[in-house]
């Protein structure tokens, strides 16, 4: 059996205590554990002490208010998927969360954890023994990024399905650290670097998520499309999250498109310059899709041929915007995650 290395484990009930513990050497934070424990079992993430957030009260639950919906960072993905009001208001968000990994994992994993999930790479998400045989990589202990050996940076890809859709929906996160709390847009949480992929400080804790209200009044329609080999379990090799706000005349007032898994952070596509002030139509969608293909940097570090994934950024963006525009959708994605249980 693959097992965890020995650790000290703490599960304090006060957030301050968790934050204080994080100040020590070689400490890692855990919530649902579905990202950290596999990484520690493979030993590409190590710690002397692991401090859990799970005993801290008040960090879970979904609260629908007039400002929008507040989701506690420890809310399980399963609880989000089962929230009827959420599904009615932000179906694309529910769809994204419902597509994460598998049902038993979703009942353990937290939304905060999914936003902060480590970047992934098939040269990195391997056991200690395997990584020894390639002399490690830039992301951990090594000197070379095997994905792009001449590159000075790490190309591990963003692996969160909730991140692109929350970026697209203008969501915000609350971070609490030793110096107090701050609220930042989800899109500002990420940095385009495979190693240092979060703008959160190591002793800051993501405690809450807010999806601002008003979306439905402003006729926001959103879509989430995910490409992967199988209908469950797999991480996205490409995801497309799109949101389009229109006025009463069906003119676009605001639009966002983010790609997941084809960069070290969610990749923002510049669509406003194309779409705002016009009604969404087939020709504009085509242009957005071409921009998406250009912006995607799929690398040979996950499943499927990288070049084809780049091409799929076009098709999937096209499909997502067609869905929003109510136009026919032709792509045949693998059957997945659309049934809620």
């Amino acid at each position: 059996m693959l097992r965890l290395p020995p650790i000290d484990y703490r599960s304090p009930q006060r957030l301050e205590e968790v934050i204080a513990t994080l100040a020590s050497e070689n400490v890692r934070l855990v919530a649902g554990g579905t990202d950290l424990w596999p990484n520690m079992k493979r030993r590409h993430q190590l710690a002397d002490t692991v401090v859990s957030l799970m005993s801290v009260p008040g960090l879970r639950g979904i609260e629908h208010g007039k400002d929008g919906v507040k989701i506690g960072a420890l809310t399980s993905l399963a609880d989000i998927v089962r929230d009827d009001k959420m599904r009615a208001l932000w179906p694309a968000f529910t769809r994204a969360v419902a597509s994460i990994s598998s049902p038993p994992l979703r009942s353990m994993a937290t939304i905060g954890g999914n936003l902060c999930v480590d970047t992934r790479c098939t040269y990195y998400n391997q056991t200690e023994e395997w990584r020894r045989s390639i002399d490690y990589c830039l992301k951990e202990k090594g000197t070379i990024c095997w994905v792009a050996t001449k590159s000075p940076r790490c190309w591990a890809h963003s692996a969160s399905d909730s991140a692109p859709i929350l970026c697209a929906l203008d969501a915000q996160v609350k971070l609490i650290g030793p110096d107090g709390e701050r609220v930042i847009p989800v899109s500002a949480l990420f940095r385009d670097d495979g190693i240092d992929y979060l703008c959160k400080k190591s002793d800051e804790i993501l405690t809450e998520l807010l999806i601002p209200a008003g979306s439905d009044q402003d006729h926001c329609r959103s879509a989430f499309w995910k490409l992967r080999r199988r209908g469950s379990i797999d991480f996205a090799v490409l995801s497309v999250a799109a949101a389009v706000w229109t006025d009463t005349k069906n003119t676009v007032t605001r639009a966002t498109v983010y790609l997941g898994a084809v960069g070290s952070s969610p990749v923002s596509i510049d669509v406003e310059s194309l779409l705002v002030g016009q009604p969404l139509n087939e020709d504009l969608i085509k242009q957005v899709a071409q921009r998406a293909q250009k912006a995607a940097t799929p690398m040979d570090n996950t499943d499927f041929a990288a070049a084809w994934r780049g091409k799929m950024a076009n098709n999937y963006t096209h499909a997502a915007l067609n869905e929003i525009a109510g136009l026919p959708v032709r792509c045949a994605p693998p059957k997945h995650g659309l049934t809620v249980v």
């Binding site: 990994s101 598998s102 049902p103 038993p104 994992l105 209908g231 469950s232 379990i233 997945h336 995650g337 659309l338 049934t339 809620v340 249980v341």
Partner: peptide, 14 residues
Amino acid sequence: PSEGQIREALSGNL
């Protein structure tokens, strides 16, 4: 449960 619900509920098991 429907067939789809069963498949989804068990879809994390190989």
